[in-house]
Structures are given as structure tokens and as C-alpha cells.
Amino acid sequence: MAEATAQDLDPFTAVESLREALHQVGVVLPSLAVDPASPSLRLVELGRVRADVALRLARALQQGSPTT
């Protein structure tokens, strides 16, 4: 399956998909939203998080990464 480009994706769908995936690993990004200032760029605002949340996110990403 080919990876979609930013122009092919609905940013609201991307935000909800990311929110659900983060929820499954116990991470909440309170500021996660579509950036309304740049609709043509379809940017997603991740926002700021506490250090403990950043660490949980890093660990979740590391656990999901294939080992080499």
C-alpha cells in the first residue's frame, strides 16, 4: 500500500487517528489539533507536554520500533 501524501490526507482524520493511537499507549497530548492558521498546509499541532509525557511517548515509540 502506497503511503499517502499530505495533500491526500484529511488533517482531522489524522488527528483522530493519532489521538486514538496515543490513547492506546497511555499518552495524552492536550493540545493535539488541526492548525487552523494554515488550512492549505494541513498541519497538525502537537503542542507542548510535560517531561513525563514526553518520556512515555518516547518509550511507546521505542517499543513499537523494529529491532535491527
Rank of each mutant, 00 (worst) to 15 (best):
E45R: 15
V49Y: 04
T13I: 02
A2N: 15
D8L: 06
P30I: 01
E20H: 14
V15A: 02
G64V: 04
A54W: 02
S31Y: 08
G64F: 07
E45S: 13
L41H: 11
A54C: 04
A60H: 07
V49S: 08
R48K: 12
L29M: 03
A54K: 05
A60F: 13
E3V: 13
A21I: 02
L18E: 01
A37S: 13
E3R: 04
D10K: 00
P39H: 09
A4N: 12
T5Q: 08
V25Q: 04
A37R: 10
L46P: 01
S40H: 13
L22D: 01
Q24W: 00
A33N: 03
A21W: 05
V15H: 00
T13A: 10
Q24P: 00
L55W: 07
V28F: 05
L61G: 07
P66Q: 10
R42H: 14
R50L: 11
L57W: 02
A2L: 12
L41N: 11
L61C: 10
E16I: 00
P39M: 08
E20M: 11
R48F: 12
V28G: 00
F12M: 07
F12P: 00
R19E: 03
L32Q: 02
Q24F: 02
D8P: 06
Q7S: 15
R42D: 01
E45K: 12
G26L: 03
S31E: 15
A58I: 08
L46A: 06
E45L: 14
V49N: 06
A2R: 15
A54D: 05
R56H: 11
S65V: 10
D52T: 14
D8F: 09
A4M: 11
V15I: 04
P30G: 07
S38N: 14
E20G: 05
L22C: 03
V44A: 02
A14R: 03
L29Q: 00
L29A: 00
R48D: 14
E3Y: 07
L57F: 14
P66V: 06
L41C: 09
A37P: 00
V49A: 14
L57D: 15
L22A: 09
V34P: 01
A2Y: 09
T68G: 09
G64E: 14
G64N: 08
L41P: 06
A14T: 10
Q24T: 03
R48L: 11
Q62C: 14
T13K: 14
L32T: 04
R56F: 09
A54Y: 05
T13F: 04
L9A: 13
T68V: 11
V27R: 01
D8H: 12
R56M: 09
R19P: 00
L61S: 05
V27Q: 01
A33M: 07
A58G: 08
V49F: 05
D35V: 02
P39G: 08
S40L: 09
F12C: 04
G47V: 07
S40R: 15
L57Q: 12
L61H: 05
T68M: 11
V15F: 04
V28S: 06
A60N: 03
L22N: 02
V25I: 10
A54S: 11
S40W: 08
R50K: 14
P11T: 05
R42P: 00
S31T: 06
V44G: 02
S38F: 11
A6S: 13
A58Q: 15
T68D: 08
P66T: 08
L57M: 15
H23V: 04
V25R: 02
E45F: 14
